[in-house]
Amino acid sequence: MKRFDYHVPQSIEEALNLFKSLGDAIYIAGGTDVMVNIKRKKISPKNLISLRNITALKVIEKGKELKIGSCVTHEQLLKDKYIEKYYTALHDAVRKLGSKQIRNVATIGGNICNAAPSADTACPLLVFDTKVLIRNEKGERKIPLHDFFLGPYSVSKDEGEIVTGFEITFLPPYSGSAYIKHSRREAMDLAIVSVATRLTLSPEVDIDFLKREAGEKTYSEFESRLLSYGITVKEARIAMGVVAPRPLRAKEAEDYLCGKRLTDEAIREASEIASSVAKPRDTLRGEAWYRREMVKVLTRRAILLSAKRAFD
């Protein structure tokens, strides 16, 4: 393994200064991608600047917005009841990400900055209209996550800049989300394809009645009724993983669904549109036709699950 020096700054300022003075350096958080890339000789930095001892980056703040520090680990996210309840798609994603050992150290910032087309947290964050908070010497800037991803393993950030966290808008009532990862194994696997959806519904029927229905009936019974209630979709978000060089929003499908009544037909149509937007490739991890097909299936399933969760 190539030699490198390892620096452990205690503050963001110290980290920025270190980068400036060292020159040949990269930031490292949990290291589960960086260390692998070094071992596989894909990169050979002279210096690593560790971000994981900077306390400010390790907090989840629940104020007007939800703010997740970039060095929050996946395990931290997984255990967060608030995220599980309100940002369920993100909970879904970290639950099936890597393994316990990986989740214990790998960070959400690392997952996003590594920008793998299969990054599990990317699609959920996209459907929550997440903004990326970036620090440099001049101060802080904020960009939509959607614009942050440039391509595979490439993000809109200068090397010296530090992603400090993610800002997620508070979701209106009757919002529900889901992330479905389609993989061969049930653990330690990368997605063949993945879909996250978020719906904000505007029900025109008695909410309490719907809630009672949800509580009393089995999921499949509720699901079958759900589509007959004539609920209107106020807002829809659909994001897909491993179907393009970067995690992709299916905006056409979102637009289609928005303002529509949530019916089986509408969901199927939205799923078809999402699938037509996807531009997957044949790779050893999955064939393009199959990925496109799966986008259809997973989108439909994720929308239904999101709708159900909107009433949880």
Binding site: R184, R185, E186, A187, M188, D189, L190, L284, R285
Partner: peptide, 16 residues
Amino acid sequence: LKNGNFLDYKILTVRD
């Protein structure tokens, strides 16, 4: 060989 690692050569985990 294109998948010579435990991520892409899929021996089963306890979850499977």
